[in-house]
Amino acid sequence: FMCAGSMIHNLKDSQDIRFMGSIVNFMPLTSVCFNVSSLSLCGIPFLAGFYSKDLILEMVCLSWINCLIFFFYFVSTGLTASYSFRLFYYSMSGDNNFYSSFYFDDKSYYISFGMLSLLFVAVFGGSFLSWLIFPIPYTIVLPYYLKLLTMLTVALGSYLGYCFSNMNFSNDLFSFNVLFFVSFSGSMWFMPYLSTGFVSY
């Protein structure tokens, strides 16, 4: 969150990821911290998120729960990987789509120190806490297909995020044909129309 906040602050409070191309060239330290923390969030092995996410999903596989709940656990894990990879793709690759005369960097000492401290926790915190909480190794015995289901879910979610990033939108979308209805139903409780006497667009 600190990395995302630093990026948003440097982009003049713009949260649109389509403006964030090639941030790695301008903010390398923030980009490294951001990518490592995103990988930890996805549950990549041996980062902090892996120890909790893998344990939770393996306990779900081991327990007697409803198939729908089982499905929701793994779909939510895949969607986490999907939006993390999509955010990585938009913010780190391609061209910078922000204003051409705008310059941003990561020279703030306090933010950099905080991000590096949290980067250390994201890399080593999971293993330290795992060794402290479970002094005796905690082994869950599952078939191979259930053991690998977590990693397969993360890989498929990342691929889905890549596919969403490459999706092109054209002018023949259905929502463009009913633009007035989409604009009307998407406004905040129809208040712009009610407060201006149906004059605003």
Results as ranks from 00 to 15, higher is better:
residue 5 G to N: 07
residue 12 K to V: 02
residue 13 D to K: 12
residue 15 Q to A: 13
residue 17 I to G: 02
residue 18 R to D: 09
residue 19 F to D: 12
residue 19 F to N: 14
residue 20 M to I: 06
residue 21 G to P: 03
residue 21 G to E: 04
residue 25 N to D: 12
residue 35 N to A: 14
residue 41 L to T: 00
residue 42 C to N: 01
residue 42 C to A: 08
residue 43 G to M: 04
residue 44 I to A: 10
residue 44 I to T: 09
residue 45 P to N: 04
residue 45 P to G: 07
residue 45 P to I: 03
residue 50 F to G: 01
residue 51 Y to K: 02
residue 51 Y to H: 00
residue 54 D to R: 08
residue 55 L to H: 04
residue 56 I to Q: 02
residue 57 L to A: 06
residue 61 C to N: 11
residue 64 W to D: 10
residue 65 I to N: 06
residue 66 N to S: 15
residue 69 I to V: 12
residue 70 F to N: 02
residue 72 F to K: 02
residue 73 Y to L: 03
residue 76 S to V: 01
residue 77 T to Y: 07
residue 79 L to N: 04
residue 81 A to M: 07
residue 83 Y to K: 05
residue 85 F to C: 14
residue 87 L to M: 10
residue 87 L to R: 02
residue 89 Y to D: 11
residue 91 S to F: 05
residue 93 S to D: 13
residue 93 S to R: 15
residue 93 S to H: 13
residue 94 G to D: 09
residue 95 D to A: 13
residue 95 D to I: 13
residue 97 N to D: 06
residue 98 F to G: 07
residue 98 F to S: 09
residue 100 S to V: 14
residue 101 S to D: 15
residue 106 D to F: 00
residue 107 K to Q: 15
residue 108 S to W: 01
residue 109 Y to A: 06
residue 110 Y to F: 08
residue 111 I to N: 05
residue 111 I to F: 01
residue 112 S to T: 07
residue 114 G to T: 03
residue 119 L to T: 02
residue 119 L to R: 04
residue 119 L to Y: 06
residue 122 A to G: 06
residue 123 V to F: 00
residue 124 F to E: 08
residue 124 F to M: 08
residue 127 S to K: 15
residue 128 F to T: 09
residue 128 F to S: 06
residue 130 S to V: 13
residue 130 S to Y: 13
residue 134 F to G: 01
residue 135 P to L: 00
residue 138 Y to I: 05
residue 139 T to P: 01
residue 140 I to T: 05
residue 140 I to G: 02
residue 143 P to F: 00
residue 147 K to M: 15
residue 147 K to T: 15
residue 149 L to M: 14
residue 151 M to N: 13
residue 154 V to T: 10
residue 156 L to Y: 07
residue 156 L to V: 07
residue 157 G to E: 03
residue 158 S to T: 14
residue 159 Y to W: 15
residue 160 L to K: 09
residue 161 G to V: 04
residue 162 Y to T: 13
residue 162 Y to L: 14
residue 163 C to R: 14
residue 164 F to G: 11
residue 164 F to W: 15
residue 167 M to T: 14
residue 171 N to K: 07
residue 173 L to T: 05
residue 175 S to M: 09
residue 178 V to S: 10
residue 178 V to W: 07
residue 178 V to N: 12
residue 180 F to K: 10
residue 181 F to P: 00
residue 182 V to P: 05
residue 184 F to M: 06
residue 185 S to K: 11
residue 187 S to L: 03
residue 188 M to V: 12
residue 190 F to Y: 04
residue 193 Y to F: 10
residue 194 L to M: 12
residue 194 L to I: 15
residue 197 G to M: 03
residue 199 V to A: 12
residue 200 S to W: 08
residue 201 Y to R: 10
